[in-house]
Computed example of a mutant assay.
Amino acid sequence: MHNPHELTDEECGHLARILLASRRVRLRHHFFSWVHGPIQALIPHEILLCGVADESGYLLHERFTACRYFKDDHYHRVIHPGDGLIQQLAQEWHGHGEPRLIAALHDEAGGWHARLGDLELKNLAFHGMSWINGQLKGYAGFSRVRVPFDNRLAMYLDILLPHLLVTLARVLANEARADGDSKRPAGLITPREVEVLTWVRDGKTNDEIADILGLSMLTVKNHLRHAMKKMVVRTRGQAVAKAIALGFLRAQGAQEKEAILEPQT
C-alpha cells in the first residue's frame, strides 16, 4: 500500500502534466480546456467556481462549467456577497484553513445536501488561500466531483490550488490588457462601481442590484451616482456606454459567452 500522505507515481505523472500544461494557459478558453482536460485526471468534475482578489482586495469571481443545469441564477446565488454559498464557505474555511469537502449525501446541521441540490451543485470540494494579512487571496470550488470525498481529494486541492489561482490571475491580467486597460484612466471608478454598472448593463433595477449585492438601495444609488459623476455622464445608459468605451465593462453578454463554455449538442 502506498503512503496516504504521498503521491503515487501515476499521480505524480498527472500532476506533472497539469503543471506543464498550465504554462500554456493565457486566455479564458485555454483555462477552460486546462480545467476540463489535464486537471480532470486528479479531480474529475463538471463545475469549477473560483476567484482571485485584485489589488484592493475585491474578489473577482469566475465560473467554468460543462454542466447545462447550472444556470445564471444559480451562479448569482452562489456568489451573493451577503448569504451566498461562497461567502459561507470562505468563512468556514477561515476558521480551519483546511479544504471543505461536502459530499452528495452529506447532511449535517445547516442542510448542505438540500442547498447544494437546489443550486445544481450536488457536491462541493472547496479550498482557499489567504494573504499574509489574513484576507482571502483566492478560492476554488469543484462541484459534481466524481471521486471519493476523502483525504486524497483534500491533498489534491491543497497541491493544485496555488497553481490554479496563479494561472487564473494570468488569464484575467491578459484579458485586462486585451480590453485596453492601458487606455483606462487609472482609478477612475472603483471595483464596486464597476460591479453596479455591470448589473445596470444587464437591465437590473436599483432594487434588484441591491438584493443581488446584499447592499441597501441607497448605497447602490450612491455608487451609481459617483460613477456617473466621475465619467461626466447624465444617465444610466450613458454610464454603461462610457464604461464599455473605457474598457471597464464588456459589451452585453460577452462575459457570459466566454465564461460558460458548454459542449454543443
Rank of each mutant, 00 (worst) to 15 (best):
I39W: 09
A90C: 09
I39A: 11
D118E: 15
D118G: 14
Q87F: 06
G37F: 04
L124I: 13
W112C: 02
D73K: 10
H76Y: 14
I43G: 08
P81H: 08
L59C: 11
G134K: 00
H30W: 12
I39G: 00
R28S: 14
S33C: 09
E62H: 14
V52L: 08
F32I: 00
L124R: 02
I47F: 02
R115Y: 11
G37Q: 03
K71M: 13
L48S: 05
H80I: 01
V52F: 10
F31W: 15
H45N: 10
H113K: 15
G134V: 07
R77G: 01
V35L: 15
R77S: 00
G97I: 08
H127P: 04
F126T: 10
H127A: 15
S130L: 12
P81L: 11
A114P: 01
A103D: 14
L85Y: 00
L85H: 02
H45W: 03
K71P: 02
L124T: 07
T65S: 11
W93N: 08
H127G: 10
R100S: 13
A41K: 09
H30E: 07
H61T: 01
N123Y: 00
L119E: 04
R115N: 11
F31T: 04
V52T: 09
H74F: 03
V52H: 08
E120A: 13
A66N: 13
H76S: 11
A53K: 05
G37L: 02
P81G: 05
I79N: 02
H96A: 10
G128D: 07
I86L: 01
W34Q: 07
F70N: 04
F126D: 04
G82L: 03
A90S: 15
I79W: 00
L105T: 14
N123T: 14
I132G: 09
Q88V: 07
R77N: 00
L48C: 09
G37S: 03
S33D: 15
H106S: 11
I102V: 14
Q40D: 01
K122R: 15
H106E: 12
Q88D: 03
I43V: 10
H80Q: 13
G95I: 02
A90D: 09
Y75K: 03
W112P: 11
V35D: 08
E62L: 10
D73F: 10
L101A: 03
K71R: 15
H30D: 15
D83W: 05
